[in-house]
Design a binder for these strands. Structure first.
Lengths: 343, 343
DNA sequence: ATGAAAGCGCTAACAA
DNA sequence: TTGTTAGCGCTTTCAT
């Protein structure tokens, strides 16, 4: 039933050459005479031969697989990233082995162990936190890792993020310039560097203007929790309600807008400005038209792939922390100050 | 620099047993005395040994990897499916190797060849069409495949879909019961079985009531094309505009609603009812509150995994075509007939 | 129950 | 340039 795959030995026999000649023909850096190449290619085509990547991996030590750890596929930012990552890697001859990480801490360690079992050439950890001995294990195994959209201090981490503190500052500047009085913040998961940096940049800039947060709630990067956070924040006398809210990402800003509009009957941005972070597709949909700080997924992915493959291919490449800039996208969910141009 | 991974031979030496004893301890169906197991486990733990899945795959012929071909990650239905698939497979000891397929036809064949190179144990093709000789190659290679959310006639295809014709009928019944006069349909990509079946069920039911489509446009399952389709359909004198539109999936229904509301100033469902298909997360967001036919992702994934793993593990399992039922979810985007209860 | 030995399909020295 | 040979790390007969 199961027809075994064609092997290089069979091709060799048919082409009348040695098995290693076949291998050479299919190995990029190897040499073979034009005649041999011709004979082998013909025989291979006739037999439908293709090299077994796993066997190649065993001897070469390179599986051409990259492990991707990912947690939040319901946040539109991540499918977009996954698609781009997969495409970029595919183009460079690698493929993505996916590992879903529940957000429970211990789970991540298990997942990374499993990844290592597959002898992946490298690991991309998207928005997950790692215990430090875990990164040690990866280093011990010689498997480079880059954190995507999370920074982590400590020794040899590589990471690619956008400049979250700068993004936070930009939102603060927008709110200040628009003359908002009572400014609220809905935080993401407090363990995340992105959350911390965005908030820090935001509040620091407010402080520079002698201002501080009027209200703060935590949404943990979850839609329902963000809606709850909005309810807590707005269940106060009308005069004490924020007139501007910065939400730590778009994924939460969407239910926040929904809640403010449909449960509190507030008009956005008439009565309250809302700003998010990421610029996910839905942020651009007319129903939300959300002002946000764009995280340039394309550039972030390109940097991630470049860095990781350099780490994989050039042994001894030093770890790097890449930070790309993120632009403020002015749309209709936040009051636009005099003289600022809508993007 | 690259510290090589611990091998079973090293564990064997430390435990004072043979290398094959170590293998037996880590091989599910194998036998070893309690004492051996104990010694080996201890040594393995001390050394941090874990079996190399690739080496195991070479000899056992099972890589415990499933290839997933996927095309539309911007449609929220698919990230959801991917997450569930990955989790379900992970739980059963398999992992997902992702291959993005551009929608160009020839590309799919290339992609499947690449998948086969990785010696995956099975393939899940989500919403992509395959040339029939491609499925032959898979069969020749002994790699079972199941089509997800696409049916395809011909010999030995396995597939998991929802009952799309039935779903289409249900939407027709809703529109008929609500007394709609001019009924429009915005089609998906015409090569897709889901598109065809939904439309067929829909128009067949209309025909049974002596009715037919007032307008029809094609959106190809693309957001921008769907918006364009809506514009074409509604750029007519007000009296000729449809008062109800069935859109072949939610991913297109969203821009259709946006276009009708923000470009034509129509109220939904006051002036026009809109119904989609899938029940993606955004369909439930208050800004859309979209009436739709739910494709039960959880059940579809469960069926897919069960079927594929049976195909993988029990040689000679016959191919099957599984069809799960899809429920009509009544929300606020379509007029609800007298006596029907909002879901 | 256990060890020795034979590969899985391939790449990479090493000779010739 | 080519063939021969030795493994990569593991599972699985086959004896013992």
């Amino acid at each position: 039933m199961t027809v075994s795959r064609v092997t290089s030995a069979e091709v060799a026999e048919r082409a009348g050459v040695s098995q290693s000649a076949v291998s050479r023909v299919f190995t990029p850096g190897a040499s073979a005479s034009a005649k041999t190449v011709e004979k082998v290619r013909r025989a291979a085509a006739e037999l439908g031969y293709r090299p077994n990547i796993l066997a190649r991996a065993m001897v070469s030590g390179r599986s051409r697989m990259i492990g991707l750890v990912v947690a939040y596929l319901d946040n539109q930012f991540y499918p977009d990233v996954l698609e781009r990552l997969s495409n970029a890697l595919q183009q460079r001859g690698y493929h993505v082995l996916v590992f879903m990480a529940a957000q429970t801490a211990g789970n991540i360690d298990t997942v990374v162990e499993e990844i290592l079992d597959y002898q992946v050439d490298g690991i991309i950890a998207a928005s997950v936190a790692l215990s430090s001995d875990l990164s040690d294990r990866c280093r011990a195994a010689g498997v480079p890792m880059v954190l995507f959209n999370r920074a982590q201090d400590g020794e040899g981490f590589s990471s690619v993020t956008s400049d979250n503190a700068q993004g936070g500052r930009r939102v603060a500047e927008l709110f200040l310039a628009a003359g908002h009085e009572r400014i609220g913040y809905i935080a993401g998961w407090e363990g995340a560097s992105t959350q911390r940096d965005r908030e820090l940049g935001f509040t620091t800039r407010l402080a520079e203007a002698g201002r501080s947060l009027h209200a703060r709630e935590v949404g943990n990067f979850r839609m329902e929790q963000a809606a709850e956070a909005a309810r807590r924040m707005f269940c106060v006398p009308a005069a004490e309600r924020p007139d501007a809210v910065f939400v730590a990402n778009d994924h939460m800003a969407i239910p926040v807008m929904d809640t403010l509009r449909s449960e509190f009957g507030l008009s956005v941005p008439g009565e309250v400005s809302v700003v998010g972070y990421d610029d996910v597709p839905a942020a651009g949909w007319p129903a939300y038209d959300l002002t946000t700080v764009r995280q340039p997924a394309g550039r972030m992915v390109a940097e991630t792939v470049d860095l990781l493959l350099k780490l994989v291919e050039d042994e001894g490449t030093p770890p790097r922390n890449v930070e790309v800039d993120g632009q403020l996208i002015l749309r209709g969910s936040a009051r636009i100050p005099e003289g600022w141009d809508r993007t």
